[in-house]
Design a protein around this nucleic acid. Structure first.
Length: 588
RNA sequence: GGACCUGUAGCUCAAUUGGAUAGAGCACUUGGCUUCGAACCAAGGGGUCGGGGGUUCAAGUCCCUCCAGGUCCGCCA
């Protein structure tokens, strides 16, 4: 039996064909709207008949009846079809169909091959993390990095060529003060020991020593002008700041499984800004205009941006983030030939990116440049359990490194308590995976647009929608295969599998076939929590199956089919968790 | 003043982007290990989906309007 990756799409096409075959009025515009159903109603449901029948004053159940009769015979062979309620068409996959799907999609590679149609041939640039150089990454940098990486992996899995671009904040007025402070107070020993720490220290000194309207501030500005004019000494300093910062960032990225293809920061676009100014002012009518000395864009069609300007060059002629972000959009469209651009930042930059995208659309239209899809992926704040911004006990900023260390330490304590017989080395390794995974997963498992309450206790809990719960399911499945001395990937043991039969077997198998749906939802909406939710529900189905039906039974055909379910659950959980950026364990 | 986000069980969050009886975890009550990892599973109680109007065969979801919290609005990003 041949079965396709996305069964819902298949059924949708089948119903469309049935509409044509039945010769119903307006069959060419009929949209079946097949989607996954509540399990109580079946595997998939078609909702399209209701709206269609209503618009033509027909009886929806009669229309549904016609369609079901006209369905190609193959559909009835693969699933039970019923009409329910006011005119829903329900499809319940037969056990043989479930088994056929599970046999077809038996590895991460086969799942990927099935999923790759969604973005095949497309190039997507994802801009995430994007910290400022010469500063520590802190807790506020976590969400962009974690969400951005998950989005990259999902896009790549669904067929896209993904370019990971770290848009560093490596240019701007703060470097005048930093150089000013560095030249006076930098301590070589401290710099060697912890460069970022030392840079932050001298920046603070530089900032404090250059109050507004002071002669010292003018000196700091002079350092900035020298840097911007290519002064060798200042440029060398700036380069050093960038290098040590990137090296420090990379230590964090390594722990989170992140590897950027490019780190094209703001400085990279310095020589690309004049073109932006020129092209935005040379159109007729011009897109940008001078207002109060600055170059700005108003969007007259917009209720707010008709009076709230988008600043693209400062009054003193200097660039700002509006300038560089415009140049960045052009570079990504021209140089990378991007079909889509995703920028992952917190929601407070919403106005900026709305204005940016409006401007880019007008600009590209005027110059006849190909316009990529533009997405600003926003997320809410990370707060403590009191609802306020997350701080250390003394009110300071929590460094990302310290936060990740604590996650691993806490996980180590839990693993050591639950599984003291494992070697310390193995417990350390497990703690890394579980601790970091818990932090990542806590961020990914909830809708990114709401604020996120940071709670060690909740993210490290073994119950509920957490990384430890999912990893526990993974570990238990590995444990079964270990005990039976079979490799999960060894498909040959499955050849004698008998037909799926028990309620728990069928329920788990049905959930497994919904992986395409969870992945599609998460990828289309750029919201990884849809994939998390699916994985959590899958792990739940597995735990119920594990309790209800023993795998290692004496009847070999029964054992084989249950092992098949275990192997597929394992592949799906591991694939899904890897897509979210987590590592997995074989025991914990 | 304008705009955006959020508001769902006591608490933390979901709800396939308009579908059928709004679901999980925590907490509370009860049951299940001489059997593959009980870090688990099964069952129970718990709801004016912030309030009110509207659109629709169908609204937690869309529109309007209030209320509450958060955020942004010219030379930071």
């Amino acid at each position: 039996m041949s079965v396709s990756f996305n069964i819902a799409a298949d059924l949708d096409a089948a119903l469309q064909a049935a509409a044509l075959a039945a010769g119903i009025d307006g069959a060419d515009v009929f949209a079946p709207e097949v989607r996954t159903a509540d399990p109580r109603n079946g595997d998939f449901q078609s909702n399209g008949v209701l709206g269609y029948a209503k618009a033509r004053k027909l009886n929806p159940r009669a229309v549904a009846e016609k369609l079901v009769v006209a369905l190609a015979p193959g559909v009835r062979d693969r699933c039970d079809v019923t009409i329910a309620g006011p005119g829903f068409i329900n499809f319940t996959l037969k056990p043989a169909t479930l088994l056929a799907w599970l046999r077809a999609f038996d590895s991460e590679d086969h799942l990927r091959a099935g999923a790759a149609a969604a973005h095949a041939g497309q190039t997507w640039v994802v801009d995430y993390s994007s910290p400022n150089t010469a500063k520590q990454m802190h807790v506020g940098h976590l969400r962009s990095a974690v969400i951005g990486e998950a989005i990259c992996r999902m896009l790549a899995f669904t067929g896209a060529r993904v370019i990971r671009d770290n848009h560093l904040g490596d240019w701007g007025t703060q470097f005048g003060k930093l150089i000013y402070g560095f030249k006076r107070w930098a301590d070589p020993a401290a710099l060697a020991a912890d460069p970022i720490e030392e840079l932050e220290r001298v920046y603070k000194l530089g900032h404090a020593a250059t109050p507004d309207d002071s002669p010292e501030l003018n000196e700091a500005r002079a350092e900035l002008v020298k840097l911007q004019n290519g002064d060798p000494e200042n440029f060398a300093l700036w380069k050093k700041f960038s290098d040590v910062s990137l090296a420090a960032f990379q230590q964090i990225y390594d722990r989170l499984g992140i590897a950027f293809d490019h780190c094209l920061g703001e400085s990279f676009y310095n020589d690309k800004l004049d073109r932006v100014y020129r092209e935005l002012t040379e159109t007729v009518p011009p897109i940008a205009e001078v207002s109060e000395g600055a170059l700005v864009v108003f969007h007259l069609e917009h209720p707010r941006f008709k009076t709230q300007p988008f600043l693209i060059r400062k009054g003193d002629g200097a660039s700002n983030y509006g300038s560089t972000d415009l140049a960045t959009a052009l570079y990504r469209a021209e140089h990378f030939r991007a079909d889509g651009i995703v920028v992952v930042t917190d929601f407070r930059q919403g106005d900026h990116f709305e204005q940016l995208f409006l401007t880019v659309k007008k600009w590209f239209a005027a110059k006849k440049y190909r316009l990529p899809e533009l997405h600003h992926v926003t997320f809410g704040a990370v707060t403590g359990e009191d609802g306020k911004a997350l701080k250390t006990r003394d009110g300071g900023v929590i460094k990302l490194k310290a936060l990740l260390d604590e996650a691993v330490d806490r996980a180590f304590a839990i693993v050591s308590e639950k599984n003291p017989e494992l070697s310390e080395l193995e417990r350390r390794e497990i703690a890394r995976t579980v601790g970091l995974g818990a932090v990542q997963y806590a961020d990914l498992s909830q809708n990114r647009s709401s604020n996120y309450v940071f709670s060690w206790e909740k993210m490290l809990a073994l119950d509920g929608n957490t990384a430890p719960y999912l990893l526990y399911a993974v570990a238990r499945i590995h444990s079964i295969f270990r005990k039976l001395e079979i490799a999960p990937s060894d498909v040959s043991t499955e050849s004698i599998a008998s037909m799926l039969e028990t309620p728990a077997e069928l329920s788990l198998a049905r959930k497994l076939t919904k992986f395409p749906d969870g992945l599609r939802l998460a990828t289309e909406s750029l919201r990884p929590h849809f994939l998390s939710l699916y994985l959590y529900e899958l792990a739940g189905e597995f735990s119920a199956f594990y309790t209800a039906d023993k795998v290692a039974v004496d009847e070999l055909p029964v054992r084989a089919r249950r092992l098949l379910l275990c192997a597929r659950t394992l592949v799906t959980l591991e694939t899904g968790l890897h897509l979210l950026g987590l590592r997995t364990v074989t025991r914990m």
